[in-house]
Each structure stands twice: as structure tokens, then as C-alpha cells.
Design a protein around this nucleic acid. Structure first.
Length: 473
RNA sequence: GGCGACGUGGCGAAGUGGCCCAACGCGGCGGUCUGCAAAACCGCUAUUCAUCGGUUCGAAUCCGAUCGUCGCCUCCA
């Protein structure tokens, strides 16, 4: 069994064969920190996280790099609007971004390079392109990539048959991009302008173009050729198309082995986008009572190349599903066997679930059947809990098996959760009340615990508690 | 206009030639258990996969047409 992954460039799904056996190098297009990202953006990042977690689960060493674009038109604009430097804007929203990642259980990339800290690398790349005849300067100090010098241009976006003159991009050339030889040519370096940040470099003053940073930073940390590059479908053209052209023109090597592009989050039948106005942000959703883990589930619950519907209903469904997971965790943790011996079929049950999970995820991260494998296991474990057919050790093994799979999913409640003395006292008092059949007192204590966010359930294993997933407001 | 994706139950979403009268999650209905509650379990909830034709022994899965939806082509995850 091997991990198979898609590739936008060829349209096929094929085995992942890392350039360095056992070590996968992943580059993810990260945020432009000009404002807070919305949940639609986080579909990409939850997908990146799922990919990396799964590769590590499968035993690969993974080096994961995600860029942070901290200089670009929008940041300059935002800074100007507030009368502050771009550093202030990018620092502020980098923090917001990292907070949101943490909320969603997205692990931090190994490297989070910033564009402004990689200017020399970009300049070096541009120099190579100039020397190789793939780039040219214009009067305003800008440098453009010469698409005519790169016959393979546009394969990723399947533009090969498109006549340059028919490309609509030609109708929408930005005012500051005059002087280009060909309308399709794109800026590697933007000449200096009053009121804009500028770096003095070997190719003259100015600031980097949009695409060059990803080429420079990915090559710096992952090499001239690496395994996986991720991003949203919207980046296929022009961003990734241009990255391929400039990178391969500079190095003569194949840039990326697998291009993985996630589809959009849909809300109200359209993609969630700032321009459409149908956006929501992570802190807003959490603030109105949606558990962060439910939000994470809602974002990862469909295959990455499929448009995913996002709505109140999908959040409610995800919340209920997460509660189901919480319930099985609490039940397994509380389970005490009635002195029965180990159930000899539990091992096969757990192995079977893991195999089904792995088979699904190996197939281009097919999350739906993988989740189905988990929920099938949950149902079967619930049956056995009800039937009291497992030993206490069986229940422990089952919980561990779930936690193993959760290394990939990131949906289970924390394992090291402990009650405060106050809550524990309430719980103990309720147990005593129940033992004395003081139902009114027992119910009162249950309500008191519920008000403090602890759900108590009575079972043959005694009281069982779990933290209530936040309730909707 | 060019390129591409997609239309599966009340909702979300798997399945891409026979295991499908279609997984899984959510919701609904009925039941079991229980001091009550909750959780859980059991049963029911699409003879059907946008529509119409075709290929095939056999299609949700392949082909064609039609209708519809969405995305990219401009910043965008």
C-alpha cells in the first residue's frame, strides 16, 4: 500500500515517490497578511494540515513550509489607510492568522518564511532569469518574465492552446504594468514608486512581484525540485502557472512533483469570498458557540478537490458528530468490565478500522470513507460497551486506536483533561446523592454541573462526565 | 467567448461497470435501556442516483444530447 496523490499538472492520481525516500517536502501557499483571513481561506490550511498529518502518520518525515506574504499591494494599501508601516499591518495579521491556525488545530508549519526576509533570494533568482534571457527590464525599473521564452508556459492551467491575443488578461493590464513586451508577461520585480516600500538590490530598487517569493522561498527551504505544492484552485492561474515558468526557466529542473489544489468552500451556493461578501471568520464562528473542533470537521469533511458546502446546517451536523466522538471517548474511559476476560475479536475490529482508514486516505486523501471507517468503529464499540463484552483493557486499546487515528483528524477532545477540585466535589456529591437515592439533590447537582459546562450521564459504569461542547447562541 | 468541475435521500457527502434496492455524518419517526435525563443501541427514513437516448449479459458508474449549478480566465485559499 502506498500513498497516492493527485497532480493538477497531469490530472492523474499517482503514487507519492519522494525525491528523497522517506522524506516528503511540502510547500503550501500561505496567507497575505493584510487583514484577517476568513474560513474559506482556512479550508486550504486545514487541508494542508490534514495532508501533512497523514504523511507523518504514514511514517514519512515531512518538511512543511508555508510562506507569509508580508509585502504586496493590499498590505501597502492597508498601511497607507491607517498611516502606519507595512510591518505593523503584517505583524498584526500574522498574529491573527497564527491564532486562527491554533484554534482550528492546524499544526504550525516547520518554516513560515516571510517575503521581506527573502529579498536576496528573490533577487538572485531574477538575476538568473535575466542572464538566461527569460526576463527583461522596463523603463520604470521593473523586471518582467518573458513568456515567449518559455514554450511550456500554461500547462498547469491548460492554456496551451490559447492564443496570446485572446487572453482576457490582456484586456485588464494594470496601469502600472506598461512597457511589457507581451501582455501575458508578469512582473518579477516592481520598480520603486513614491510612497511604496522599496529595497535597494543588485537589480535596482523596488519590491518583489507576487509570484517570485514562492519560487525563491520554496527553493531556499526545499530545494530546486520538491515533492508537493499546495494551494487553492484559484492559484492555478496565474500564480502557480507563473511559479512553474520562472522556477523551471531558472533551474532547468522540474519544479514540483505533485500540485494539490483544494476546491472552494461554498456558502449560499457561491464560493466564500470577500468580494462576494459571504464570508465568516474563525473567531466569529467560535464566539457564537460553534466548537472549534466542529468547525475543523466541517472544513475537512469532504475531499479536497470537491467544492464543500458550508452553512449553519453543516456546522450543526459537525457539532453533533463531534459530540458523538466525545461520547465514545468518555464512555471508553469510564468503562469498567464486569470481570470478563479480553474479547478476542477486538483486535481484529481495531485493525480492520485502521486498515479501512488507511486505504481511504492512501487514495488521494479520500476523507469521506476514512471518516466512515472511524464512525463504523464508533458504532461497533458502542455496541460492545452496551453489551459489556469487552474487558477494561479492551476499552483502553480501543480508545488508543481512536486516538491514533485522531493524530490525522485532530477531532477528539484533549486526553489530559482533568476537572477542577470544585467540579470534582460536585461530581462526588452527586454520586453520593444517587447512592442514597436522593433524586432531587442528584438532579440539582447535575444541573449545577451542566451550568459549568460538564455533562453528566449515568451508566452501569457509574457517573460519566464530559465537557459539553459549546452551545449555540 | 475560452478552459474546467459538478448535478446521488430532508441536509451534507461517499461510491465511477456486477459486492449498490447506494457508505458515513446530521435530521426525522418508532422502539429498547433508564429513578428522571442524557448517551447508546435496534428498526424505519433514495427499487433510485438531473432529464432523455445509447453501449453492455449487466450502469449511479461508459458514450451522446438536453437542462441546471459552480469555478478559473483580474486580487483571491
Amino acid at each position: 500500500m502506498t500513498v497516492r496523490l493527485g497532480d493538477t499538472l497531469t490530472g492523474e492520481v499517482r503514487p507519492l515517490e519522494p525525491l528523497e525516500p522517506g522524506h516528503v517536502r511540502v510547500y503550501s501557499c500561505g496567507p497575505t497578511v493584510y487583514g484577517p483571513a476568513h474560513v474559506g481561506n482556512f479550508r486550504a490550511f486545514t487541508f494542508d494540515d490534514l495532508l501533512v498529518r497523514y504523511l507523518r502518520f504514514r511514517g514519512f518525515r515531512v518538511t512543511w513550509v508555508m510562506n507569509v506574504t508580508d509585502v504586496d499591494d493590499k498590505i501597502i494599501k492597508a498601511a497607507a489607510a491607517e498611516g502606519v508601516g507595512i510591518e505593523e499591518i503584517s505583524a498584526r495579521y500574522s498574529k491573527v492568522f497564527l491564532d486562527d491556525l491554533a484554534t482550528l488545530g492546524i499544526r504550525q508549519p516547520d518554516v513560515l518564511p516571510r517575503a521581506t526576509e527573502n529579498i536576496p533570494q528573490m533577487v538572485a533568482l531574477i538575476q538568473t532569469l535575466l542572464e538566461g534571457g527569460h526576463a527583461y527590464r522596463t523603463d520604470d525599473g521593473s523586471v518582467f518574465f518573458r513568456i515567449a521564452s518559455w514554450p511550456d508556459y500554461g500547462q498547469l492551467a491548460r492554456l496551451e492552446r490559447v492564443d496570446a491575443n485572446e487572453m482576457r488578461v490582456g484586456e485588464r493590464v494594470e496601469a502600472d504594468e506598461y512597457g511589457k513586451d507581451d501582455v501575458r508577461d508578469f512582473a518579477l520585480w516592481k520598480g520603486p514608486k513614491p510612497g511604496e516600500p522599496s529595497w535597494d538590490t543588485a537589480i535596482g530598487p523596488g519590491r518583489p512581484g507576487w509570484h517570485i517569493e514562492c519560487s525563491a522561498m520554496s527553493m531556499r527551504y526545499l530545494g530546486e525540485s520538491f515533492d508537493i505544492h499546495t494551494g487553492g484552485v484559484d492559484l492555478i492561474f496565474p500564480h502557480h502557472t507563473d511559479e512553474i515558468a520562472q522556477s523551471e526557466a531558472a533551474t532547468g529542473q522540474r519544479f514540483v512533483r505533485h500540485w494539490l489544489h483544494n476546491a472552494f468552500l461554498q456558502m449560499g451556493g457561491q464560493k466564500m469570498a470577500k468580494s462576494t461578501g459571504n464570508i465568516e471568520r474563525v473567531p466569529e464562528i467560535v464566539a457564537r458557540g460553534v466548537p472549534a473542533r466542529a468547525l475543523r470537521l466541517a472544513l475537512i469533511s469532504a475531499h479536497y478537490r470537491t467544492a464543500l458546502s458550508f452553512s449553519e446546517e453543516s456546522l450543526d451536523a459537525a457539532t453533533a458528530a463531534v459530540e458523538r466522538l466525545d461520547a465514545i471517548v468518555a464512555a471508553l474511559a469510564a468503562y469498567q468490565s464486569d470481570a470478563a476476560g479480553d474479547d478476542p475479536t477486538v483486535g481484529a475490529l481495531l485493525d480492520g478500522a485502521r486498515e479501512a482508514f488507511v486505504a481511504a486516505m492512501d487514495d488521494d486523501l479520500n476523507i469521506s470513507p476514512a471518516l466512515a471507517a472511524v464512525f463504523d468503529l464508533v458504532r461497533e464499540l458502542n455496541r460492545r460497551i452496551a453489551a459489556r463484552s469487552m474487558s477494561t483493557a479492551d476499552a483502553g486499546r480501543a480508545l488508543q486506536a481512536l486516538r491514533d487515528l485522531d493524530e490525522v483528524l485532530g477531532l477528539l477532545p484533549p486526553a489530559d483533561d482533568a476537572l477542577t477540585p470544585e467540579l470534582q466535589a460536585l461530581l462526588d456529591a452527586r454520586a453520593a446523592a444517587r447512592a442514597a437515592k436522593q433524586w432531587a439533590e442528584s438532579d440539582r447537582l447535575r444541573d449545577a454541573l451542566a451550568e459549568r459546562g460538564i455533562a453528566v450521564e449515568d451508566t452501569r459504569d457509574g457517573q460519566r462526565w464530559r465537557r459539553q461542547v459549546a452551545s449555540r447562541v
